[in-house]
């Protein structure tokens, strides 16, 4: 079976982003970009399924500008077999992304589409669910454990109430949470091999997709800062302060 894995180029999670003074967005010029950490986990999980003999092929897909090929190369270096780049300089919102992924899914017919549960830039947490809806497939979001068994899978999900296990028929969409696995370090020879692995490129128009109506971003602002607090010297002082505020 094939697994299709989504890979998004985002500002590296270590970067402290700055909101532009004119409210037009977040400064990304020259900022370190990486693969969305949840997607890295998705790639790792797909590779582990392949290594366990449960999948034959892992295909990485990204939607984004030319530079997103760097993240595809990372996925290929980790071990993905080939990659698909849907190239666009537009801001692609989740519903459009889901439509693109649906079109690729129709072409490739994977048994599992594995996506990160959210991208750490816009934190939407939507694309996997939307793709599952469009394909009328089962979805198992926020996965922390995946057992594939023939044509179905048991997926443990991290939800607010604890750990929920669902049994889903394949094909399905799975979104990954942080504790699913720890992604491997890329090996240098695999970076070289990745260069020779194929990347197929499409435009959104070539896929015959109509972009969805978009949410319009009117402005970007910095969050309200908390008032700086104080250091107290002792437990007694702390307790007195909390009592004064009526908190204990």
């Amino acid at each position: 079976m094939k697994i299709l894995v989504g890979v998004k180029r985002v500002v590296d999670f270590n970067v402290r982003i700055q909101v532009k003074a004119d409210g037009s967005g977040v400064a990304t010029e020259g900022v370190k970009m990486s693969m969305n950490p949840f997607d890295e986990i998705a790639v790792e999980e797909a590779l582990r399924l392949k290594e366990a003999g449960k999948a034959e092929e892992v295909i990485a897909i990204t939607i984004g500008p030319k530079a997103s090929q760097e993240q595809l190369r990372t996925a290929l270096a980790m071990g993905a077999d080939r990659a698909i780049h849907v190239e666009t300089d537009e801001d692609v919102q989740p519903l459009t992304a889901a439509r693109i992924l649906k079109a690729i899914t129709d072409k490739e017919e994977p048994k599992i589409v594995m996506l990160g549960k959210q991208a750490i830039d816009d934190d939407n947490n939507q694309t996997a669910q939307m793709l599952a809806a469009l394909a009328n497939w089962p979805q198992a979001t926020f996965a922390s454990k995946i057992d594939v068994d023939g044509d179905s899978a048991n997926v443990t999900r991290e939800i607010d109430a604890g750990l929920e296990t669902l049994s889903i028929d394949l094909p399905a969409v799975i979104s990954t949470d942080l504790r699913l696995n720890e992604p491997r370090y890329v090996k240098l020879p695999d970076i070289m091999k990745a260069k020779r692995k194929p990347i197929e490129t499409f435009t959104i128009a070539e896929l015959g997709i109509e972009p969805a109506a978009a949410v319009k971003v009117l402005k970007t602002s910095a969050p309200a800062a908390r008032q700086a607090g104080i250091k107290v010297a002792s437990v007694d002082e702390l307790v007195a302060a909390l009592k004064e505020k009526g908190l204990i």
Binding site: I17, V19, D121, D123, V217, S221
Partner: peptide, 9 residues
């Protein structure tokens, strides 16, 4: 967005 480090309208 960005883990609450920016807010969009």
């Amino acid at each position: 967005i960005y883990a609450g480090n920016a807010v969009i309208t």
